[in-house]
Design a protein around this nucleic acid. Structure first.
Lengths: 355, 355
DNA sequence: CTCTTTTACTAAATCGATTTAGTGTAATAG
DNA sequence: CTATTACACTAAATCGATTTAGTAAAAGAG
């Protein structure tokens, strides 16, 4: 009755508990040293004849020898593991970055631990320590402030830190702000509302300064009663919804809204709609990040894209570089990546009837 | 000039390279054995006076002693690490599950490695092995088939597997299908289109069978030309968009659409709109999963919620249980979780003018 | 035929903890 | 005053690899 095929026996053999190097050595009538040299393709194995090497590889495969990772790690003082600190796992933002990090790290034979601090002070404080207890060889912090300096290569994405030993990967905020404002400006918008990021978000300040600069260059006035700030730390459009309501309640008219990120833009659109305003006919909305669902809003969300996946890849490349060639790469403190404006349906020319 | 505060010196001291147990022992004039017993709060330390214990703890803190993880891991034959296998990191689905897993694991002192196979055969084959090489103590597979049996506790979420040693966490598909169909049925819908999942998705078959069953119970006919299947493996609404276009092109009218997941439902809505159909006036749409952006579609997406976070927590609890109390929990093969219907704006009564 | 070099390995130290079986001293029991 | 028990530790084996220094035998040089 071969209904369930006989994968079971085969599998359980091939996946059986691994034997030790010593056992393998005894089985072959060799010493563990020899096994080690051959398995690791050490140059010291040059004098070992091909035939013996093949015997070793064959037996290793047949007996399912897998070097004990802890032993190897202990001896070599390497863990081949990186720690990744993110605010949340559930956000489109962090997920994209992580996927870039993963690609790059696994390719190079590293694994990574992820921890998410959800902006809790105690976790922010403790997680780096926990990761160090686990002997990670480097840290990637995504949108996370690095208070203490850490005796490890650290790469920070969007969390600009002056701490020594930190390489920062940041977006060209000036260009990002200019892309968005210039787009709105050329559509005729002069009354533009802004949603700033939360205090804790490391991008908030830089982005805002860039907006101020761009506005100045364009000769655009920013009214303080058209500026509101996200509050709360759930990664939900709800926050954008609330802050947009506040803006609407302020009484000051606006024909365009530049949100801190796509998530809040999505919430804001809902608030606008509920207030009877059409997007983009009455109010144009620009988001930030270009998370996946931005494209599938109705209308599609015009947004400033951050190359999130690429930033993840870059971060991984950079930590590994700093781990394997500490001196040469120690100097690079700042890596800038470029934004891109993605124009979709949520922005349009200012309507003469209303503006 | 205390502009930059002096966190630097303090930090670099407190985060300095850790010393070894032996060094700590010498510093205290004790033996490493004693340090170990005290630090680990071993019962064998009962005879050691409180004063000495405090001396040890104080020195450990002052000299920044951190037990070497590899050494401890080697000796105890434990890694306190779990492997998590997901199809993609970028999806709302996996992200929510992972966040549940993370919570639970970190709480219990475990870390986890994530790998994403993107449905590539070679990675599906290799990643479990790589994880085992890293000495993970258990595996959580999210929406991922387990071909081979693995000599480790395995918990599978939405990837039903008969392999020995696998605990399956599955949604009550029958109830899920019934919730959705019953909702549509009571709104008057009789011409319902369906988007099935991809072949490779482990949920596809079970969900479809449940739909067939629910339809039968309700006395609902399913027309084969109103059934289409997702193709391609990118986690993007694009797939739903394409398949909905195919359904529309089929010429057969329908007043409702039940999609395989929220992502494809979102894409499908766009296709419907482009075809001049209004949602929900002309076509009601039901999604599946309740990912975050479902609530912030316009209109909000009616969907069958899977308790994704909870499934992650449950999976983590279960692996840990199986690791720490192997015999007692080995028996549980199946854990069922319950869906919930979330009614939002994308479904409405069938319109008499058009149906 | 001796001396050097190469070949084909191995012994043993090491990485940094954990843990078991003791050891020497002090206190208490009988 | 001896026997026992409790106290306060420690020596040494162990986990499973890696790696350096070395050895015995064979090959090659002169």
């Amino acid at each position: 009755m071969p209904r369930k095929k006989d994968t079971r026996a085969v599998a359980s053999r091939s996946a059986a508990q691994s034997i030790s190097q010593k056992a393998l050595a005894e089985h072959l009538g060799l010493s563990p040293a020899t096994i080690s040299l051959v398995i690791n393709r050490s140059p010291a194995a040059h004098s070992i004849p091909q035939e013996t090497k093949e015997r070793i590889f064959a037996a290793a495969k047949r007996l399912n020898y897998r070097p004990n990772f802890a032993a190897r790690s202990l001896r070599k003082q390497r863990s081949f593991t990186i720690g990744v600190v993110v605010p949340e796992i559930s956000e489109g933002y962090a997920a994209l970055v992580m996927s870039g990090i993963e690609d790059q790290l696994l390719q190079e034979g590293y694994f990574y631990f992820v921890v998410s601090h959800r902006h809790r002070e105690d976790l922010l404080e403790n997680y780096p320590k926990l990761l160090m207890n686990r002997a990670v060889e480097g840290l990637i912090a995504v949108d996370t402030p690095c208070r203490h300096s850490i005796p490890l290569p650290v790469v920070s994405i969007s969390g600009y830190s002056e701490a020594p030993g930190v390489t920062n990967i940041v977006l060209n905020h000036e260009r990002a702000a200019m892309l968005a404002l210039d787009h709105l400006f050329h559509l005729g918008h002069r009354q533009i509302a802004f949603i700033k990021g939360q205090e804790f978000s490391s991008d908030t300040e830089a982005r805002w300064n860039a907006i101020l600069l761009a506005a100045k260059i364009l000769g655009l006035k920013i009214r303080s009663n058209l500026v509101a700030q996200l509050e709360g730390d759930a990664p939900s459009p709800e926050l954008g919804y609330r802050v947009a309501q506040k803006l609407l309640g302020g009484g000051q008219r606006f024909t365009a809204l530049f949100a801190f990120n796509d998530i809040s833009a999505i919430g804001a659109i809902r608030a606008l709609r509920e207030a009877g305003l059409r997007v983009p006919e009455d109010v144009s909305v620009v988001g930030f990040d270009d998370i996946q669902s931005a494209a599938y809003q109705n209308p599609g969300l015009t947004t400033v894209r951050q190359p999130l996946r690429q930033m993840g890849v870059l971060a991984a490349e950079t930590v590994l570089q700093r781990i394997t060639a500490p001196t040469r790469s120690a100097s690079k403190k700042l890596i800038t990546v470029e934004p891109e404006l993605i124009v979709r349906g949520s922005t349009g020319p200012v309507s003469t009837g209303r503006a």
